[in-house]
Amino acid sequence: MSKRMGAQTVSLPSRPGVLAFASIVGQKESEGPYGGKFDRIIEDEMNGQKSFEAAERAMLEDAVRLCVSKAGRQLSDVQLLLAGDLLNQIISAGFAARSLAIPFYGLYGACSTISESLSIGGMLADGGFADVLVCATCSHFCTAERQYRTPLELGTQRTPTAQWTVTGSGAVMLAGGAAAKSCAAVLTHATCGKVLDLGITDANNMGAAMAPAACDTIAAHFADTGRGFDDFDLVVTGDLGHLGRDLLIELLREKGVKVPEEKLFDCGCEIFSPRQDTHSGGSGCGCAASMICAHILPELEAGHLNRVLFLATGALLSPTTTMQGESIPGVAHAVALEHRKAGA
């Protein structure tokens, strides 16, 4: 029996479960509105390492270890690690996997990586290809600035649409088969996004570059499953930021989708408070990953949220394409998550 629903969605009938999750963030993120909810704070941006890149991968590694220990398991119990990050050749994920010694598939979806890995992880668990696996990702303000923008000490002004790369990491342990029966939060559907580009060339305006992809994936999920905003407690986007969220609302309305704005929760808008002066909000792989691990998944487990559509958005650019004047392709992958009552 085919598990495909419509053009872009698959159903996960065995309901892979969320066994455990862990988040680690930096100092600035810990001073935001959700600061008290993260599992661990890194006070020193070097994280006790000799470079920012080493600091980032140590954070990813620690998030995975923490997630595994919160589940009461050993690293050797984990059959697969699906991870990726923003750095060239996804070095944070690859290097962390070297120390963790878990069989590893590296993924790249820019900031959409956490929902990309949850989609693929959910399908692998549902298909019986893995019983216990971990999806993880990370980003670090200092490594992202170095790679995409200018040296940290350069005295420049950020534009009003610029977003602040989150220093943070999130790891989610998924279970399939019998191990999933005890989970209070489960995956029900995954929608694979198309890459969309509406001609934004400003690398300091990621929200505008990614909003069309988010709109398209939400519309595709609704069309494929016959659901709408009414069926969800929240639609959680990754890091559209303030402008990107406004654009998403506008684009959805143009498509004829009624948008109850209070149901649209953007991790990039929420992770920092306005007085933290991040301009359009947070971004980076670690933004959505740490926020779902600190806030959304706990609320789902507790039953405060019953059904959530989570889609992280990614801008698939590189410094080379920016310099060559290319526009920025965006992508968004969605997973539908539900609370499951004990014994159900």
């Binding site: 649409t161 001609g199 505008a208 402008l243 654009l247 506008e250 301009h279």
Partner: peptide, 11 residues
């Protein structure tokens, strides 16, 4: 879309 972005973007 460029028009929409220009309308909504903070200056």
């Amino acid at each position: 879309y460029a028009g929409l972005v220009a309308r909504l973007a903070p200056k």
